[in-house]
Amino acid sequence: MNSIVEYYLSSIGKKIVMSLTGLFLIIFLVEHLIGNMLLFANDGGAKYEAYSAFLVGNLVIRFIEIFLFAFICFHAILGVWLWFVNRYKRDTGYKKYRLRDNVPLASRTWTIITTGSFIALFLLIHLRSFFWPVRIEGGHMSEYDLVCRAFSDPLYGGFYLAAFILLGMHLKHGFQSAFQTLGLRNRKFTPIIDAAAFIVWFFIPLGYASIPVYFFYYSQIGGR
């Protein structure tokens, strides 16, 4: 068998695909967050829309975008597949099983699959709200106006906040897990990875959460 195919089919190979796609998605999360911070520029969205136009018009970004969508699908489908396969590795379940004594909440199998599924649902709704009107329908509203309108609805904003809390949990397990899979967690690197993990799972979702909160407040005080 071709050694790359053989490698991918092995249990460690699948783990490495999960970890590399996951790390790529984390890089995207950082880039997307930095771009979104332009929403706070208080210039009626001018800088944000210029940045958005730059992304749409840049061929390299459009090329990377293809990989982004592919990796999201790959990460999600492989994750669900592994969860499904792993369930059948124990045909008779335990009557008593105290996983919670040994494993923190974020790392339990049930948490990972649930938070991941919710994030997938969030992504679909997020794409429908922002990607679809701008890129597919070629919208009548500016991106900035879309953001203002969407987050003036507390239900919609609340859904985003819930998704970011779950994203934090998913990252809490995922980030350190990716480095463990790549073989980089050892006595030397683990403290560095754990410190970076805190920044990733706490500050990235917090940064994202600030957007719906800010724009809801903005709508309440009579902004657009």
């Binding site: 592994l82 199998t109 463990q180």
Partner: peptide
């Protein structure tokens, strides 16, 4: 042998 895939939960 049919063992499951590791998901790094360290149980």
């Amino acid at each position: 042998e049919g063992f499951g895939n590791c998901s790094n939960n360290y149980a």
